[in-house]
Design a protein around this nucleic acid. Sequence first.
DNA 1: CCACGTGGTTCGCGCTCAAGC
DNA 2: GGCTTGAGCGCGAACCACGTG
Lengths: 344, 344
Amino acid sequence: MSDTTAPARGAATLHDVARAAGVSLATASRVLNGSTRKVAESYRERVEAAAEQLGYTANLSAQATARGTSAIVALLVADIADPYFGQLASGVARGADEAGLVVTIAITERDPQREVKLVRALRGQRPRGLILAASRVEGPDAVGLQGELDAFSNMGGRVVVVGPGGGSARSVAVDNRGGSAALGAELADLGYRDAIVVAASEGIRTSDDRLAGFTEGFTAAGGVIREVRRAGFTRDAGYAAASDLLTGDVPAGTLIFGISDVVAIGIMSAVRDAGRQVGADIAVAGFDDIATGRDIRPGLTTVRVPLEDLGYQALHAATDPEWTPGEPQLPLEVIVRGSTPPRG
Amino acid sequence: MSDTTAPARGAATLHDVARAAGVSLATASRVLNGSTRKVAESYRERVEAAAEQLGYTANLSAQATARGTSAIVALLVADIADPYFGQLASGVARGADEAGLVVTIAITERDPQREVKLVRALRGQRPRGLILAASRVEGPDAVGLQGELDAFSNMGGRVVVVGPGGGSARSVAVDNRGGSAALGAELADLGYRDAIVVAASEGIRTSDDRLAGFTEGFTAAGGVIREVRRAGFTRDAGYAAASDLLTGDVPAGTLIFGISDVVAIGIMSAVRDAGRQVGADIAVAGFDDIATGRDIRPGLTTVRVPLEDLGYQALHAATDPEWTPGEPQLPLEVIVRGSTPPRG
DNA sequence: CCACGTGGTTCGCGCTCAAGC
DNA sequence: GGCTTGAGCGCGAACCACGTG
């Protein structure tokens, strides 16, 4: 008469379940945590009942050490409160859930040094995959990163970069150049002739590509890029850049293209705070189509990128053994809203 | 002449490091992963050098099984793309980072059944703490949840509920009632007399408290709640409720209070799509003060709750052994913006 | 001879998987 | 065939074995 059904301090172990069911550890393991081998129905039922009754849940850490591989995917973003990363993370989470994986998240705060440290720390978890959603994998800042990333790869983990990839990592990319070229062309068609671009620092591929594409599309259709301001990817950077811009002489009818929607929203606020009007006076456009762009007035003209799908694809790139780069190239779409009314 | 410095397939283990440094496992363990015991400087250096050179990082899973406790905190949110949860998660992540913890995140999609499954799955990780940011821990839906939560507690994990807590779980709460009472009073002072509230279902504490508080503050100052509509916590729910509302007769000067900013933003869009104007015509107010509320026009009147701090506190509630409920009650502040202009 | 301080050995954490009966 | 036994995953923490004073 042993105290079999004790709720126990500290989780029930597989051992407890096996004992309660009167079978061996291996048998219990087979029925509860998959295996190719079969086990007789009668045993299976007993084990399942015991597990249920003890509230057993496999200890994933132990499983991971025993199996040598974990069920974890790590996600690295610059700022989870930023809607861009939020939507992306949504897709990652959905995919992970479907695949029975758990996602751990870390925030770089856009600090390359911090990012290196985080990758190193995350490596400790031996995740199956690592998704980098906000990093420059090239350039001088990335020197330490590459080392960590390689170490991660050598460990058997898969590295996925969202955006322009580099090196051995898989990458899930968006056609930034093509999308902004289409945006530029469309806006020129609407009658805009003078544009200012608020971009990030040179060397940041996403920014460079969007700038290049926009320039291409806009000038080809007869527009002129008056100026390129260097800011960052945040709302406040956009606000500051535009505020500064507007202390100078910006004629009505000028278009300001923010390198991302978040930046563009900062620009819109700055325009208004400078006593100007968004739309007919100063037009604003962005890139990404975050949800907010739909609810602000005037609506924000932008290029829609299916962010959630992007995250979903990143997850699969990180976990599917056979995966071919640039699989389903995500469809981009120019969306014209009130922030860029047609210009006579 | 053994192949000591081999980069190795599959991560370097503590064993590798010890061998490379010519010491025992225990010594290597002592220098790399804390211990009360000392080890001679000469050994220490050799171990550290070897670890550095092999790119060693402790296997957290193995550590967790050996120690019997992990360095993980689990976070459960309804939707990570929702700015409310995004900002909250930001604070959780910051606190975790400071404490050397890793956070794993899961999305409930506001589905109670799903939530139960997730808690069970997360339990497998044996996290040190579990933060529930979006759940009703009371009511009929919560019956299964409570069981999982108890199991989690019995395992030695700490459960923290963001919002009105229940049962044995710690909770980090916001004074929803007081905040919305203040908001109601302030709006009545501005001259509003008729209000419609778009809330969530009855039984959801956050919604109930905000509704009760608002009613209290608004009526005490002479206002009248004309109607309470039941929707949900999403932008689309707010939009739908308000659209429906506006097919009926809603006189100018009416105030619509959305149970959260996200809902309020949906309401604003619906108001506009119905051909009405936000502000002097139909006034709108929300709760939370998400970042977007500052950038839309007119600005959204709301109650500011320091969401990031809330997340930060939740993390500490989940990890600090000595922690007293309702420690620093978070300061709330009514913020009046253009969506509720003073009414003659 | 007995503390003490420092390094090594060994067992076990909870689990999986290959080999045995 | 179906189940069990046993070895081992990477690590931590007792425990033991020395060498000093």
